[in-house]
């Protein structure tokens, strides 16, 4: 197998140059898809027979929840890569991604609470799904806190990587909480193997919104990583040259 891309990805300089080309197009595409998906869902998709217009919060809630989990999965993988291969880029990624994931988890929790009040009759209930997503949010907060408290960079890299990997255990719990236990939260409307539990004019805007959120997050994390690379590599020749020639 050809591992050149993997080694290239490990080079901050190479990543900086590569992501400079891709960050803006990916981010713009994400923004566009998000606006189309959310706008379509909120304004034009049909109402639900049971919940009326209230269900439309799904177009914000589901993409945010999906991203909160996916971002954590990526943190876990990065943590793993750092702990085994000591790759320089991994902690840069973890530091850049954690606040974005935390924001997504917060949006999912808040929009869920706002949705819960009119449909279930309560803002919050300590069921397995809600609690495990709160734990996910707190894991993000823990990683951010560790990053900011530990002044020794090597120690911070190590600590955040360990928390990222161990927190992975929470992901299957979130995913299957609605199947393993009695919860107030309903089971998933989407799965890779089955037909969605809603007609196309409802799931298509949702799918577009989810893709939009993904691209948006990828664009954002590239930009955050670029600044982090410049900061960490400030003593290297290529960063010095770049700053001398172009400014930042």
């Amino acid at each position: 197998m050809n591992w050149i891309w993997f080694h290239k990805l490990g080079s901050p300089k190479w990543f900086y140059q590569w992501s400079s080309k891709w960050a803006l197009p990916v981010f713009s595409m994400g923004l566009l898809a998000m606006l189309v998906g959310v706008g379509w869902g909120l304004g034009f998709a049909p109402t639900d027979y049971q919940q009326g217009d209230t269900y439309r919060i799904i177009y914000l809630h589901v993409p945010a929840a999906v991203l909160a989990e996916s971002c954590y999965l990526s943190l876990g993988v990065a943590g793993f890569v750092y702990l085994v291969w000591q790759m320089k880029m991994a902690p840069i990624f973890i530091k850049s991604m954690a606040p974005i994931g935390a924001a997504m988890a917060a949006i999912a929790l808040l929009s869920g609470a706002i949705w819960g009040k009119p449909t279930w009759g309560t803002w919050w209930v300590w069921d397995a799904r809600l609690t495990s997503v709160l734990v996910l949010f707190l894991l993000y907060m823990g990683i951010i806190a560790l990053q900011n408290t530990l002044e020794d960079a090597a120690l911070a890299n190590q600590a955040t990587a360990i928390v990222s990997v161990l927190g992975l255990i929470n992901l299957p719990i979130i995913k299957y909480s609605v199947n393993w236990w009695n919860t107030l939260h309903q089971p998933a409307s989407f799965s890779l193997t089955e037909k969605p539990a809603m007609p196309m004019e409802m799931w298509l805007p949702l799918l577009i919104a989810v893709i939009g959120f993904y691209c948006l997050v990828v664009g954002l994390v590239m930009w955050r990583m670029q600044s982090e690379i410049l900061l960490r590599e400030r003593r290297t020749q290529w960063v010095k040259e770049k700053v001398m020639n172009h400014g930042v």
Binding site: T47, Q51, M198
Partner: peptide
């Protein structure tokens, strides 16, 4: 509780 199915009226 509501289920995971959504449908236009």
């Amino acid at each position: 509780k509501h289920d995971e199915k959504y449908m236009p009226p």
